[in-house]
Each structure stands twice: as C-alpha cells, then as structure tokens.
Design a protein around this nucleic acid. Structure first.
Lengths: 224, 224
DNA sequence: CTTTGAATGCGTATCCTACTGGTCGAGGAC
DNA sequence: GTCCTCGACCAGTAGGATACGCATTCAAAG
C-alpha cells in the first residue's frame, strides 16, 4: 500500500509518516507541489494525502492536472479550513474526500481505507488465497483463522502478491510496493524477505507457494 | 444518473428527492431495509444514499450484504450521529462515504459527484490466441487461466508472435524483438527459444502452433 | 529482542554455442 | 513432367558458462 504525502509542515509530516508506517503503509513524501508532480508523473500510488497550503501554491490545483492526465488515484485533501464552501470546491475539483484539521487520526485512517477500497472494489477488504486470509484494512494475516504475525516488510510482500494471486507480479513492481522510492536499497533485500516469507508460509501450511520466475518476477499460487 | 434513496423520514425524503431531481438525477425511494434490498436486487443504481436509522434496523447492515453479493455501487451513509467512532464503523463496513446530519445540501451533492466519478477500469492490455492469453503489462502468460511460467526470452518470442497472430513475423523482426540490438548473437539461439516455446505450448495445450516458413520467418496460428 | 538490509556462497535455470539430422526447393538430366 | 542431387535452411538436442535467485549469516538499527 503506497501513499504519497504532500505536506510541508515538518512535524505534521513526521507524525503522519510514523502513524501510516505503523499501519504498514509505504509513504513517499513531497514537500511542494512541484515535487509532488514529479513523484506522481513517475509512480503509481494507491492514494494521495494532499495538503492545501503548500509553499508554491494551493494543493487543490494539483488535482485537476492529475485528472486531466488520466490519473485516477484517490485524493484525500487535508486543510485547516473546514467550512462547507471549501469542501464543495475541493470535491468538485476532483478530490475524492476532504478532511479538516484538526482531525482524529482514526478518522483519517478510516477514510483512507474507504478510498483505497474503491478502485479495487471487486475484492473485499479481506483477500483470501489457500488457507491464508489477509485483512488489508487491519493489517492482519491469518492461516485457518490462526493469526500469523508478520513483520512489516514481509506483510507488504504478501499483500502485493495476494492482490494478484495466481498472476505475475513483476520484480520491479514488487520492489516499489515494498520499498517505495527508496533507491537506497541495492542488495537482494527483496529476495531475503521473500525467502523469509516463504519459510513462514510453508511452516504454517498456508496452502500457497511463491514461485519465482527468473528475469520476470514472482507469482503466488494456491496449492490445491 | 439513478440514485436509490433509503430513508424513512417523509420530509427528508421529499426534500432530497426534489433537490436531486433538480440536478437531473433519477431517484428511487425505499422506506425500509427490506424494500431497499428488493430494489437493489433488481436494479442497477449509480449510487445509494443510505440512512442509518430505519424502521427495520440499522441501514449500515445493508452494506456488507451488498458487497458480499458482488455489488460495488457507491454508498453514501447519512446519519444523525456524527462522532468519529461512528464514521469509522460506517466506512469499515464498506460504505464509501459518510455524512452527518444536519448537512449542507451542497456538500451532499459534492460528495455524491465525487463518488460517481468512478475510477476507470485499469487498463491491462492482454492479447489472446487459442487458449493462450498474455498480459503484456505484467509479463505474464497463462493458458485457460492457469499461469504459465516462461523465461524472459521465450516470453519475448511469444509476445512478438502473438502481437501478430495469424500473420507472418519476419525472422529479422523477431530477432530484434528478442535480442534487441545485440548483434552479438550469431547463432541459432532464436531457433532454440522457438523450439522450447513450441514444446511448452503443445504440452500445455495452448491451442496454438508456431509454423516456420523457410527463408521468411515464423507465424503463430490458432488450432481451432 | 525483533526487524531489516548488506554480504556471501551455493545451486541451478537460463541462455548461447555447437552439432546432428531433417526438410525443403532449385535446377538439371532424363 | 518426373526424378534425382545438392545446398541451404530449419528443428531439435546436448553441453558448458553465466548470471540469477535462494537461503543463510551478520551487523546495525529501531
């Protein structure tokens, strides 16, 4: 689950980033409109958290640009102002939801979950494969009802794979789903996580296997 | 634009109906959960406005039923209660948005418009031939839904051929598609890949054959 | 203590080369 | 027109080099 956070106030950034990370989301951060445009042009995010007050303009102006470019990523606007006229503006410009500061973080999360559910509305909140089930919203994996404790990175790998059960996930795509834009990772860290995940899944009899396909990527299959 | 309004208070109903009608929306009205289920089962709506307080129960209970039945119609919850915990519940049950009474009608409209802007189906370019299908974007081949693990080079051959199913692909063109501009290859490497691919396709009953035409190139045909 | 990324060594799938046998078609002799 | 011969091209198999992925270990970071 990849989120782009567009916000300039440092303490807000670190607070949100920490909170989102705690919910196992991969967060990229842009401090300005310009930066945000750069990120968005290159990458696919599951959602965008967008502050209105940015150093180089009103965050709201970003949304029509996105939509015009065919980008349908859900956008959740954040703002200090909270009156109705503002909300209407925001939503009409193409934002998908609108949240006024100060807000309860719980509400932010809930709205985010709602947004994230929509594009992939076909699947329910919980994805299943083999004896595995994954509650995407609450970040819980379980095997035959037994909860399975998974570290953050492994969970991200599993989620990315389960979202496409039985279908290919390109190595590159998986990298992005797990590490975001952290190019700093130059090792076989991904392989490591896949490996660890594999072991846990087989030990716990998850009813699935992760196939690796050389030069292409990975593929999670059910062992029926 | 067809809206299902699930609400029991008469004056609310008439007010909303009039207002929505003024914005060129077609409104069906259900006064109870039971009635709503009936409507939903039969008709396709673009969105559902759902009150929580209904004579025969909490409106919220309708949402999981819908989702379980594969219905992905956007749901906008209406409620008198407006605290965060309630919102979280509503959104987690699968509602797409949540609005507390009293609300500004403008905001309702704006949120509704946001919901109705459904994300376009994700374009995944898949080519088909015989029982074969190839997801070009994800670099994945499958036969009758069963994923077929193909190494990189073979996949490239297959892609190049499937892009021109039933038509000739010149040997030279195929070389370039598979090896790029690597002139370093001076052997019959291409033939070996074609050979391996042939075997896999026939073993897995792909419903296609690769014909070789002397002095010209290759040609993928469906064996119908 | 758990989690994570880097580093290491091993095993093997993949890929190119090389070789062999097969097929096709052109051209000439009858 | 028919048949034969020859050469070019193609299909398939085998083998070795390489790169890739896997598992594991280790140290640092939270």
């Amino acid at each position: 689950m990849r989120i782009l956070l567009v916000e300039d106030e440092p303490e807000m950034v670190s607070a949100l980033r920490a909170a989102l990370k705690r919910h196992d989301m991969v967060v990229d951060h842009a401090g300005s409109l310009l930066e945000a445009e750069g990120f968005v042009a290159v990458d696919g995010y599951d959602a965008i958290l967008l502050d209105r007050q940015l150093p180089d303009g009103d965050g709201l102006t970003l949304v029509p640009k996105l939509r015009a470019a065919g980008n349908t990523t859900p956008v959740l606007m954040l703002t200090a102002r909270g009156d109705t006229a503002d909300k209407v503006d925001g939503l009409d410009m193409g934002a998908d939801d609108y949240l006024a500061k100060p807000f309860a973080f719980e509400e932010l999360l809930a709205r985010l979950r709602a947004l994230l559910r929509r594009p992939a509305a076909i699947e329910t909140q919980t994805i299943r494969a083999g004896h595995l089930s994954l509650d995407v919203g609450h970040r819980e994996a379980s095997i035959r009802g037994e909860p399975l404790a998974l570290p953050r990175r492994e969970l991200l790998v599993l989620e990315a794979l389960m979202r496409r059960t039985g279908r290919m996930v390109q190595r590159e795509a998986l990298m992005e789903a797990v590490f975001g834009l952290d190019d700093e990772i130059q090792s076989n860290a991904l392989d490591t996580h896949v490996s660890r995940l594999r072991r846990k899944l087989s030990e716990a009899d998850g009813g699935v296997v992760i196939n690796g396909i050389r030069g292409v990527g990975y593929l999670l299959r059910e062992t029926t």
